[in-house]
Every structure is written in C-alpha cells, then in structure tokens.
Design a protein around this nucleic acid. Structure first.
Lengths: 256, 256
DNA sequence: TGATGTGAACCCCTTCACAGCC
DNA sequence: GGCTGTGAAGGGGTTCACATCA
C-alpha cells in the first residue's frame, strides 16, 4: 500500500475498513459462482458487476487484503476465494445456537445457507417446555435451562436471537454471560452488551419503513408537505414519478 | 436549518440524509414505547439511550425534520411520534405482497410487526400449484400467475422476495414490470433493477460472515493465519484490544 | 496493451462544543 | 439552569484518474 511492496505488507494487517468487510461476503458469493462454472480468472470490472458494486470500489477493497491480482490479467478466482474465506474466518467451523424457535427461528434452522459457509447449527433453544424434545430441521430443540451448558460444551461464540422482543435482552445477557461474543438479533429491540461483544441486527419492520419513506417520496411531495405540522394527518395523493431515486445503485448500510 | 426559520422550512423537505432516515424507525419505536407508558416528554439524552445512539446524533437527525423540541425541556413524545410517522409515510397504509411462501415467507407472514406499522399483507404468492389455496397466517396463498393482477388490483408498491435465489431475479422483474417500486429481498442474490426502484436486502449469511470476521479477530490470529497458502499469510499481531469494537450500538443493513 | 493498485479529491456522516432559547 | 439546535471540525468511505507493471 503505502509502500510499493507487492507481497503482503506483513504488518498492515489490521485496519480493513468495516465497509469493506461488509462487502467481502458479496465478493465471495460471486466468486464461488464463478468457481463452480470453472472460470479461472476475472477482471475487477466483471466481478464488480456480479457483486453489484463498481470496479474502483472493488479494487480498493481488495487492496486492503493485499495484492492478489495480476495487472493486465485480473484475479485468479480460486485464489481469491481462498483469501477472502480466510480473511472472513470461514476456513474454520463456527458453531451457532439459535434461541427462540418460533416461526422465524424454525425458518432459519431450515435455511440451507447456514452450513454452506462454515456455520453449523449446534443447538436450537427455546423457553417453552412444550418445544423441548421436538425436532426442527432435524435437530432436537432443547430447553433454555440447558443454554449455558450447551454454549460451554460446544464452544459457541455466535448466537442468533429469534425470541419475542420482551425477552431478547435477558436472553442476550445469558448468552453473553455464557461466553457468546457475537450476536445476530432478529428481535425488534435495542440490545445492550458489554464492550467486546458484537451485535448485528436484522429488522424487517425497519427495512419496510425505510422503503416506505422512499416510496412516499416517489409518490410526490404534496402529501407530506401539505399539512402545516401541528395540523391533521395526510391524505397522500400518489402518482408514480421516478425522479429522485435515493441513489443510482444501491441503498445502504450504516455502521453503528 | 440554513435559515433560522422555525416553522417547517416548507421547501426544505428533501435532503434528509439516508443515514438519518435509517434511524427514524429506531426513534419511532422508542417513542412508541414511551407513549404507551404515557411519558409526556423526553430529553435527547434519554431518547438517545433508548434508541441506542448518542444524543448529538439524535439532535442532528431531528434537526433535519424541523425544530420539534423545546429548549430546556425536551421533546413532546406524542408530537414526535406523529411527525416521524408522517415523515416515514406511515400515516398511510402500505399493501405488501410476499412472494415465495416457504419457511421464511410463512414466518414473515406470521410476523406481527407487520400490521402494527402501516403495513398490510395484501397477498401471499407462490409458484407451487400445491401451495395455492392453502391458508398461511390466515391468508390464502395465490399462484404466481395472479401476480400482476394482484399488484394492480391492490395498488401494491412494495414487494418482499423470499424465494430461492435461482428465481429471485425473474420474480423481481415481474414485480417491477407490474408496478412495484420497492423491494425487500431475502434471497441471497444481487438483484438488478431499473432506476427509480429501491432494493434493500436482508441476508442472514452475510451477517454471520461479518460476525465471523470480527470473531476471528477477537480469538487471536493463530487460527486462520496458520496456513501458508500460496505464500505466507500474515502474522498479524493483535491481542484482544477492545479498540476497534465495530461499534457500541447497532450494526446494520446493506444495499443491493 | 490492458487491468491492477493507489494517492488525492470529494462527499457524507459523526462528533464536538457552544450559542440560543425556554 | 437546562437542553435544544447547529456551525465547524474531524473521520470514513467512495470515486477519480493515473502511475505501475505483467
């Protein structure tokens, strides 16, 4: 990077931007598809198109990992798959527990994409005694009482919370106390965790609301602007119109 | 804003930063909880804590909406709930269709948080003739053949895709052709859409991979770096260190 | 020749710190 | 006195554009 060194700046290691990390899985997926089609190399342009980003961004992202490409040629697909997998920590197996086996928890348990990439459902946990013992996705549901033992026995460091919002924080606390340091939260609640624990959230309702915001914009401004605040709610005429388009390409993320 | 005007800058309307829009649902949720407890006002500090952000950010966010607070006092809860709802377009009803009624689609259909906030499941659609006619979450599943008619008849502008990845793009194309301009994609695929159509994606696998990356960091480098691929991986000294901590509060989504 | 790797410009967002108002 | 609203500073991330090198 800074230096013109080619072979892995050695100590650069830290400092992969969070935004880049969030895109690595995207690149990996695109590369895996190419790999299955036995494509040997790709240019940044082609791969970027497949991943839905622009090529400059992709090259910059890869530059944080090292110089894995060949000028005038492109990137070796297999090699990149390996490097990104390694960077993401997917060369090892991550046991995961899912807590809260309702509709969503069961759906996730059945989700194939899990095992495909280094993740293994180590246990399904539910607070309902009725659920305990039942089979979901070929796995026997266990009662919450077992949570600490399960986590400890399996060395689980990643937990998925699919409980009702009311109990999400306490489930989270127990997971953390038992040794979990990464949590994927599907419950519509803000979780507070100690330093060193990562939380990512997935929230259907929030996503829909963001879409609604833009949708309203597209429909025309009359609606929202029509009423002098203190006043009465809208009527919202609506009428198509493309204009604004939040962004040419993709919506976006954001850090925390 | 720019001007010192107090009463709804009228034409300011556009220009709410995307990052702010993404947090409005969070504020709204916290405010709704306060409202249910009949709390009349909140300070930026309290509300920020409840929403998991810092107070400066919250005040800045609200400043894009207008001057809705009272210095020395705080914000009126009910008033803010209304203003944010209006801004997000939740004062109207948004009919939504869910395409792909497998485990996940069914789970979403059963998800309560839907109706609670201006969203209404107008239809469940599946390509499997076996599914058509079945009841899921109290709604009769309809066959894909009906898609265009359903969207048109109900004025649907938001679609949720929970199909297998292989058919997601074609489903997307049909939705868009039929008039849908906002899509929430749960399929692990990059969707391409024309300008003016918003896509947000929710991807379990990507979230887990991001967590794995950080998890690997916490665990120390030995593991992944141990193998000398094409050359030698890094040594990456690193040693715990809370430092970086992806963030204190909340993670996020990402574009398409 | 052609595509990578990257400094530098640019832009958006976050954070600070305090002026302004109740 | 207390808390909002906001210029200004600071950081990150994206994009540009080109030097670099197989």
């Amino acid at each position: 990077m800074a230096t013109g060194r080619t072979h892995r700046p050695a100590t650069r290691s830290r400092g992969i931007p969070e935004a880049t990390v969030a895109r690595l899985p995207l690149y990996l997926r695109a590369l895996t598809a190419l790999s299955e089609r036995s494509v040997p190399t790709v240019s940044s342009e082609e791969l970027a198109a497949a991943a839905g980003v622009n090529s400059a961004k992709l090259r910059k992202d890869f530059s944080y990992l090292g110089s894995y490409g060949t000028r005038g040629v492109g990137y070796d697909v297999e090699y990149l798959v390996y490097q990104i997998s390694r960077e993401l920590g997917l060369t090892q197996d991550w046991p995961v527990v899912i807590v809260g086996i309702g509709n969503l928890g069961a759906a996730l348990a059945n989700y194939g994409g899990f095992a495909s990439r280094g993740f293994r459902v180590a246990a399904l946990i539910d607070a309902d005694p009725e659920m305990a013992g039942k089979q979901v996705a070929g796995i026997t549901v266990q009662h919450s009482d077992e949570m600490e033992r399960i986590i400890s026995d399996n060395g689980v460091s990643i937990g998925v919370i699919t409980t009702p919002p009311g109990v999400a924080q306490q489930v989270c606390d127990r997971l953390v106390a038992a040794g979990v340091t990464s949590i994927l939260n599907f419950a519509p609640t803000v979780l507070s965790v100690p330093d060193g624990v990562d939380v990512r959230k997935v929230d259907l309702s929030i996503e829909l609301q963001i879409l609604a915001f833009h949708e309203q914009r597209k429909a025309g401004e009359e609606a929202a602007n029509a009423l002098p605040d203190g006043a009465v709610p809208a009527s919202v005429t609506r009428k198509e119109s493309a204009d604004k388009g939040p962004d040419g390409d993709v919506p976006a993320v954001m850090p925390a």
